[in-house]
Structures are given as C-alpha cells and as structure tokens.
Design a protein around this nucleic acid. Structure first.
Lengths: 230, 230
DNA sequence: GCAAAAGTGTTGTACTTACACCCATGG
DNA sequence: CCATGGGTGTAAGTACAACACTTTTGC
C-alpha cells in the first residue's frame, strides 16, 4: 500500500527519445523515422517510445535502441529530461532523451524499410516533431564534449578503423576541419592505438592502415593520472 | 480527447530534487533537510517536490527553490533524470535533479527552522535518502565543468566579491588548491572584472578589494570569438 | 604517368606551471 | 611590533598551431 503522500499527486506519461548517431563516408548521421501515429503522423521524428511500468529509464532507452537497430550493448548516454507543458501536441508527456553511437557498418538495412527509418546527415536535418531538433542539438553538444575527453568515439567503429576515417569522424562531430599532422601527433602521444597489419583499400588506392583501440593501455594512462584529450 | 495511443501507457509520479549550493567561509555547502514524510522520515534528503499538472520541469524546480530559499531568479541547471525502478522506497517515482547556486549572504535563517534545513559542507555529506548522494555527485561534476567554461560562478555572490573569496570558491568547487598568482593572472587576461573602491575588511586586517563582473565586456569577449576559461 | 589519398617533422607562439617576497593593518 | 592575510612578476616547460612535400597504387 503506497503512502497517500505519494499517490495524491499527478501521474505523467514518460517517453524516451533516442538520438542515434552513426558515421559513414565522412558524415555524421542521425537515424530518423516518419512518426507512425497522430498527431503529426508522417512527420520526421526521433526514435522513441513510452516508458513502461517495470523498467528503468535506461532500460526503456535500451529497448528503443534494440527495436530500431537490433544491436545490443550500444554505447548510450542520457542527454536530459524535457518537460515543457506543451512540448508534445498529443498530450502531457515528459521525455527523457538519450544519445547513442552505433556501428553503421553493421546496420541491417531491412530495418529501414520495416520502420520507415532513414539515416540523415546531422548538418541537414529536416524539421522534426515537437522539441526533437532541440534534443539533437543538445545531444550533439554533449557528444562533442564526450569525444574530446573520453575515448568513446571508437564505439562508432567495429573494432578497427583507419586514421583518416577517425579524423573525418572527429571533424564531422566538431564541425571544423582538423590538421592531419597535429591530429596524428596528439593521438600518437597518448599511445592508445595498435597499428594492425591490414589496410583498408576501399577508400584509396594506396590504402590506409587499420588501427584498434587498446583498452589496457587506456587503463594504464588513467592509473598514471593522465587523461584522454582530443 | 487524447489519442488512446497515448493514454494506454503507464503514468508515473515525477519528482524534482534540487541540489542547492551555497558558499560561505571557504566552504561549498549543500542545503539539506530532514525528510518530512515516510518512508525514511527524518533521514537526510535533498529539497524536492512532486511535479504538478500545469507546470514544466523547470517551473517545478523553480517552485521548490523558491519554497526553500524565498529567492527568485536563482541560477539553476538540470542535472538529469533518475529512473531506476527501486530508487524511491515509497513508490515508483522518476526524479529530475537540478542544481542551483544561491547567494548565502542573503539567506534567511528563519527558513532553516521552518523547514528543518541545514547547510552542510559538500565534502562532509551524510548518507542521503534514495539516490540523492549520486545526484549531488553528478551535480558537482557538472558544476565543476560549468564554472570552468562559463562565468556562472558569480551567481554565488551578490554583485561584488573579493579575489581571495573567488579563489576560495573555485578551490572548494574543484577540490584542489590553486596558485594565487596564476589564478589572478588568468582572470586578468580575460579583463572581465571591475575593481571597486571599497574593500572587505571582515576577513583580514589589510582588507581585500571588491570586484564586480562586467557583463558587457563578457559579451564583447564572446563576440570576439574568445571564451571564458578558468 | 597521373590523380587521389596516405603518411610524415619542424618551428614559432601561446599557455601553464612553479615559485618567494613585500605590504597593510588591527590588535 | 608582530601575526595575518593581500597583493605582485619572472622564467622554464609544455602544449598548440601553422605549414609542404614524398609515397603508393589503381586506372
């Protein structure tokens, strides 16, 4: 039996909206869909869903992510809660936004048809429903901060990546060009990447070496009181 | 009439919890209270309240801040939403945390008696109810970031402040000692403070000059593409 | 053989850190 | 006159920014 102090208060619908980021061909994309229900049916929208009774906010977000990507263990972080009274034209809904980094190389394109989902370049977003444009903006700001202070950018890749691709990704996130030599020097001084034997021959004739992120050396760096910085 | 797509979903209690920071005598404090209701009645808790029907999250937080401080226009920022299933022993409640910076010099001590409120040094917090310790920790992390990148620290003062007090405050927030000369040099290069005629004679015999933050010059600095950094 | 992308070092400048003494005043 | 906190500059080290040419290879 719940205390009446609790139950005499208003109850609210809670939604979770996910800003799903992916990287391909030098561009940072967001996974959008055509909103399947009224109001604003068929307008562009983030991937979302209502929170259910026996799940945490995090679990609700994981559920949404799994539904639209079929991937598990996606890197995800909360952006914040959005609670303006009129933010959702369909009713009083408080929404909690999460951003996620997915490996687009693994993305199942049949999902796109099933959910009417499309990857849209973050620099060319259409008008989204409700406050979703604001959410994307806030998510990108947070993403910029995160990838500059923690080695989370590697979540966009499936284990290995080339340095040109990594630089392209940082440039797409920061939305500024970076100097190639300075970029590689800075990466080099942290000594966190392992150069692999293989090259990516798809995006150039010469081919670029693949690298992988070394978690053990990152742990050592942190233990030594140093920090990731890009 | 609401679409059934909306109303067929579970509704939740939403609370707002405020981490109210204040600064006095070289120490950063948080305003705590003894929880007035069951469960965990009389345990240490943040200031909070349930969200009501016709208010935004921000308005709900402002309401809580006003109730416990009687101050308006308090600088406030959202920390995030907390939604673990068992986070509140009294029922299923999603809480959104906000931190606030208040001017302790203006604080009305009669409020302390009325609400059983006490300022507690942030380095010596007791065990708080639910996930409130986590909220304070997250709020402090965010506060550290904010005061290093935006000139928001001045919200702890009522217009004027001395440089020793400002340095003490940064040290209390960062929880590391700072070098006095380097601190003043860095402040000086941004040229955002106006030296006043008057001195504070309370905390030393010689007295320290008061300064005030110059909003116009800060706007100019931003316009010039530069940024606040401390 | 040439276009297209990968890879590689140096130098000047700006910022950060470390550090010690004199000053003003109330008691 | 002395204890207490306020105020001031310099030099070394580190990090950042700017910049151009050679290498590889598919076509």
């Amino acid at each position: 039996m719940l205390p009446s102090y609790y139950e005499n208060n208003t109850h609210f619908l809670i939604a979770v909206d996910c800003i799903i980021f992916g990287f391909r061909k030098k561009e940072l994309h967001v996974l959008l869909t055509r909103r399947p229900v009224e109001p604003l049916k068929n307008e562009w929208s983030l991937m979302g869903g209502f929170m259910e009774e026996n799940e945490s906010l995090t679990q609700a977000a994981e559920k949404v992510l799994y539904r639209y990507t079929q991937q598990k263990n996606i890197y995800m972080e909360q952006v914040g809660a959005y609670g303006e009274v009129d933010r959702d034209a369909g009713g009083r809904v408080i929404s909690v936004a999460f951003y996620a980094m997915v490996k687009m190389e693994n993305f199942d394109t049949s999902l796109a048809r099933k959910f009417d989902a499309r990857w849209i370049n973050v620099t060319a977003l259409p008008e989204l429903v409700f406050d979703h444009n604001q959410m994307v903006h806030d998510a990108l700001t947070l993403l910029q901060y995160k990838v500059s202070t923690e080695p989370v950018i590697f979540n966009f890749f499936d284990k290995k990546f080339t340095l040109p691709a990594l630089q392209d990704l940082y440039e797409a996130i920061y939305q500024i060009p970076l100097d190639k030599r300075n970029f590689r020097k800075k990466l080099g001084t942290m000594d966190l990447l392992d150069k692999l034997e293989v090259k990516d021959k798809e995006s150039s004739k010469r081919g670029a070496y693949y690298y992988s992120f070394n978690r053990e050396r990152y742990a050592d760096l942190i233990k030594a009181g140093r920090r990731f910085s890009m």
